[in-house]
Design a protein around this nucleic acid. Structure first.
Length: 282
DNA sequence: CGCCAGGCTATCC
DNA sequence: GGATAGCATGGC
């Protein structure tokens, strides 16, 4: 068991509680157990930074996963006076946009549609428990996300049994596509627009899910997912526009190449009912 | 209990 | 092009 301290600033709890990953379990002593690319880890807040426990720690992979090489302070400065975002930066300071394995991100956000966070987490947990591998970190059992081939074996029946409902065929067909050569890794290297179009050729992947995969799994910082919460925020700032696609375009025009980073601050605050404007309430 | 959830597809006009 | 029903399931 190794241990490494990473001093870069992050708020682990806020980041993990912001509905971009559904894979980390809070343990009794306040650390989080999970995996990065099937490697089990234990992550803990240490001051402003992180302490990570595990075997064969790959520090650069951990830094990349938690987006610690991005200068958030500098990036967020340009949003200070942006009414959609500015006031939200301070209240979720330390929020980071994760870079998760793309297959894991795709499965999670296929599960996410018309679903709540508690149940998305439950579905991911059951899926990994039943179709993934058990690995161990310290005294904790952790389960890996099943590969596409594992899900093909698990079948639509398995997916329905764990409660995926009508999303079961979406996940199964995505697994089939990847097994047949759909190159998820290429999405990170393509221009955003082409990556979006390519992802949306998958059955069950619309624009919102595709944007989540591109933002949380492919490093496309401009990807701007519009769910119900973001739609509410946008509706307040662009009261004359009702069309969701045009709302998204208006927002991205204003927010620029890191629109997706800003999106995560907007989303988290809105979902947590953190005031600002009045859309929060909760 | 009824409403809602990080939506999408099919189908209508 | 834009609008709307139906979808499985469970949290709250």
């Amino acid at each position: 068991m190794n241990c490494v301290f990473i001093p870069d600033s992050i708020d682990l709890e806020v980041t993990i509680d912001s509905a971009q990953s559904f894979r980390w379990k809070r343990t009794a002593n306040g650390t989080y157990a999970g995996t990065i690319a099937s490697v089990p880890l234990l992550a803990a807040q240490s001051g402003e930074g992180l302490t990570v426990y595990g075997d064969a720690l790959d520090v650069s992979a951990i830094r990349r996963y938690f987006d610690l090489d991005r200068n958030y302070e500098a990036l967020l400065l340009k949003y200070e006076d942006e009414p959609m975002v500015g006031a939200r930066i301070g209240v979720c300071k330390g929020l980071r946009v994760l870079n998760q394995p793309v297959w894991e991100t795709l499965v999670a956000f296929l599960f996410s549609q018309h679903n709540n966070v508690a149940r998305i987490t439950l579905l991911m947990d059951r899926l990994c428990r039943e179709a993934g591998r058990k690995v161990r970190v310290r005294e904790f059992d952790v389960f890996t996300v099943p590969e596409p081939e594992d899900i093909l074996r698990f079948g639509e029946e398995g997916l329905r049994r764990i409660g995926a409902g009508y999303r079961a065929p979406y996940v199964l067909r995505a697994a089939q596509a990847v097994a047949d050569g759909f190159d998820l890794d290429s999405l990170a290297h393509m221009p955003y627009d082409s990556a979006l179009v390519k992802l949306m050729t998958l059955h069950g992947v619309g624009e919102k899910v595709a944007d989540c995969v591109l933002l949380f799994g492919c490093g496309h910082a401009c990807a701007f997912p519009v769910d119900r919460w973001i739609a509410r925020v946008l509706a307040e700032h662009f009261p004359d526009e009702k069309n969701v696609r045009r709302l998204k375009r208006l927002a991205v025009e204003r927010l620029g190449e890191h629109a997706g980073i800003a999106n995560q601050f907007m989303f988290h605050c809105a979902r947590k009912g953190m005031i600002i404007g009045g859309e929060g309430a909760g």
